[in-house]
Computed example of a mutant assay.
Amino acid sequence: MMAKPKNGKRGKTAGSAQKWSIVLILTFLFVASAFLQPVQARVSATILGFRASENRYFTIFYRERNLRLAAILSADSDSFARRFCSELGLKKPATPIPVYIDPNSSGKTEVFPSPRWVNGFYDPAKRIIVIKTARQLGRGAEAEILVVFRHEAVHAILHENIAHIPRWLDEGLAQSFSRGFTIQNGRTLLGVPVKNFRNYLPESAFQHENTAKLAYTLSSGLVSYLRELGRTPLTVFLKRLKETDLETAFNSAYGINLSFFFYMFRENYLSRYTLFSLIVSDEGLFGVMTLLAVVLLLIQKIRNRRKLVRLGEEDEKEERERDARLTAEVAKTAEGEERKGGREKNLTQGH
């Protein structure tokens, strides 16, 4: 009697093979799409009239007139990506991110139209960075295009590492690693009560004209303080954000809640921007000494000028007196000659 085939085991084997076939197909499609994406971007850019400067993490697309700006970005882009990812423990882009230098223009050359006040933007759906400021930049203003690029590059790298990142942290990192936090920013935030900080952190605060400025400034300050507290807790914070919510991730990394962090930020970080703190700080003292030196130089310059005027007046007075004495001597000599001539004439007539 023939044994019955074990249909269950055969069916299980067939199902496993089918499963692995699907995995292999999906892997192939993923690898192929990753390979074809930059190729497709280059072909599309060529059609749109762009040239390409290929780098490890960014491909700069530009037109002939923006060659100098493209060279500046190419020289900076990869090194910036390495520094940023190294400091925060993030993965570098697996494939180059396209960066288009597409200045605002009233003609038909603008490929990625945007409002005139936009300096640049990152489009996560298309995975592209667009720089819009090039038309306004002249020679000597190259630093501005680097600021715009680094800001948008931070957004792009963060998007590829963390699926859901709070807007204030996203913008704060972009501001901190591009333009930085200035004394004017600190002076501005001193006027905002701690209890109102949370009003400027939601997504909506960055989208309204009356709150956007403070929202960007506050986010920049908060992240600057986080960086000052150390690299390790910040990298842990970003890592935890991939797995849990904001409050839990922050508490796990820093051991405090956000409300207490805001208080620390106000008392420990912003306090250095009070007028008294600025004056007694090393930078403030240097500024005061420099100002004092400038004032002393101005006083000395004024004194020297007055001295020169006084010396000039004295020289003129001496010259007038010398002329007067000379004139008197000439007149006296002439009078003596006239008298002598008169006496000689009288003697002649007498004879």
Rank of each mutant, 00 (worst) to 15 (best):
A143V: 13
E87Y: 13
G191Q: 14
R179Y: 05
R266K: 15
T333D: 04
A141V: 03
E318C: 00
I47V: 15
V294H: 09
K340E: 15
E267F: 02
S106Q: 07
D315H: 05
E337I: 08
N119W: 05
R266I: 00
L173V: 10
L226I: 06
S176C: 14
F276R: 15
N268H: 12
I128N: 01
K108D: 15
E283A: 13
T235Q: 15
F181A: 01
A75Y: 05
K12W: 12
R266L: 08
M1S: 11
T217A: 08
K91D: 14
T248Q: 15
S281K: 08
I299N: 02
K6T: 00
T95D: 02
A249R: 05
G221A: 09
N7V: 14
F261C: 06
E243L: 15
I47T: 10
K19V: 02
V295T: 14
L169G: 05
K126A: 12
A71H: 09
F28Q: 07
A75P: 00
L189G: 01
K108I: 10
M2H: 08
K317V: 14
L218A: 07
G172H: 01
K242F: 06
G140F: 08
V154E: 02
G230S: 02
A334I: 06
D170E: 14
E318A: 11
V111Y: 00
Y100C: 03
K307D: 07
G8H: 04
N119M: 12
E243C: 01
G350A: 09
K239F: 07
L88I: 11
E319Y: 15
F58Q: 05
V223P: 06
I131K: 01
A205I: 06
N7P: 00
N346Y: 07
K132D: 05
K317G: 01
G49S: 06
A141N: 06
V130C: 13
Y273H: 05
G138Y: 03
Y62R: 00
L88Q: 01
S224P: 01
I97F: 03
R306W: 11
R150W: 08
T109N: 10
Y273C: 03
I129W: 04
S220P: 00
N66Y: 10
L158C: 06
W20Y: 06
R187S: 04
N196V: 06
N304E: 09
S16G: 03
P96Y: 04
R306T: 10
I256E: 15
F181G: 02
P38Q: 08
I279N: 08
I47E: 11
F177H: 10
V147R: 12
L218T: 01
